[in-house]
Computed example of a mutant assay.
Amino acid sequence: MSGKVYLVGAGPGDPELLTLRALKLLGLADTIVCDRLVGPSVLQYANPQAQFHDVGKIPGCRQHQQDEINQLLLTLARSRQRIVRLKGGDPFIFGRGGEELLFLVQHGIEVEVVPGITAATGCAAAVGIPLTHRGVAASVRFITGHLRDSDGLELDWRSLVDPTCTLVFYMAVSNAATIVEALIAHGRPADTPAALIHAGTMAEQDCAVVTLQEVPGMIDVFAPPTLLVIGEVVRLYSSPAKRALEQAGPTVPHSFNPPLSCPTELA
């Protein structure tokens, strides 16, 4: 009989932000297929006897194409029982989880999706930037910073200039100059505040607040994974939340204790 694939969101990096379901599945998995953006401290809660497959994609590298990952999951599901497909953030927010779900279901494989905290909400919260705020931002949009197979970044730019909408670009480092140029050309003011957040929620977390036009000049400082937040809510970073973070000093890893007794079978 075929096994079951669990598409599990690992959250933005801090293991304390795992869901209880994700923690349970990690401890019971006999196979783990892991993305590059999964926080390394998350993996300490994986079953040490589990078979491990690193399928992390590296920008500009042809290694681990999506079709190959789909086929690997199918092959594993036909020979193993509990396959955890572990993804950074949430599987259905720029995680290709929908593609993997459809592929596996079409081949008769049972799939369960376990949501995770996506990078936009996790990283913004970690630095004290609310993505929506009464009287400042009435909506928020999550936007990919690059398209499939490195195609050009063709977006509906006119729809992205509403000053009451916060924009959050994922994986935007390589196309930062294009994003900034297009937004300004279509009406976003050049002095709109923007935040670059690297390794949000992790010990090495870093954040810089600049204007929109200054973003391209910061890219050499911020390597992937870096989240780009654009909008008036970024001004709130200079609020008491920022001062509290500064007074606390560098972020340190949280102590995280799993449940005293782990389940022996899945619900």
Rank of each mutant, 00 (worst) to 15 (best):
K4T: 12
V5P: 08
G9I: 03
L17H: 05
T19H: 07
R21D: 03
L23Y: 15
L25I: 09
L25K: 02
L25R: 06
G27L: 03
T31N: 05
I32E: 02
C34Y: 12
G39R: 08
V42N: 09
Y45S: 02
Y45T: 04
P48M: 10
G56D: 03
K57G: 06
K57C: 00
Q63K: 15
Q63Y: 14
Q65G: 00
Q66Y: 11
N70T: 02
Q71N: 10
L74V: 01
T75Y: 11
R80T: 12
G89P: 04
D90I: 03
E99V: 05
E99T: 06
G108A: 06
E110K: 06
E112P: 03
V114Y: 13
G116V: 07
G116E: 09
T121L: 08
A125S: 14
V127L: 01
R134W: 13
V136S: 08
A138C: 03
T144I: 00
G145W: 08
R148T: 05
R148W: 08
R148E: 11
D149G: 03
S150T: 13
D151S: 11
L153Q: 07
E154Q: 14
W157L: 08
L160I: 01
P163W: 12
P163G: 05
T164Q: 12
C165A: 10
V168C: 07
F169V: 04
M171H: 00
N175M: 09
N175W: 13
T178R: 10
I179S: 07
I179N: 06
A182H: 15
I184D: 06
A185S: 09
A185P: 03
G187D: 01
A195C: 05
H198F: 06
G200Y: 14
C207H: 10
V209E: 00
F222P: 07
F222C: 02
L227M: 05
I230P: 02
V233H: 13
K242V: 11
R243C: 03
L245F: 13
G249S: 02
P250N: 00
H254C: 13
H254F: 14
N257I: 15
P258F: 15
E265P: 02
E265G: 06
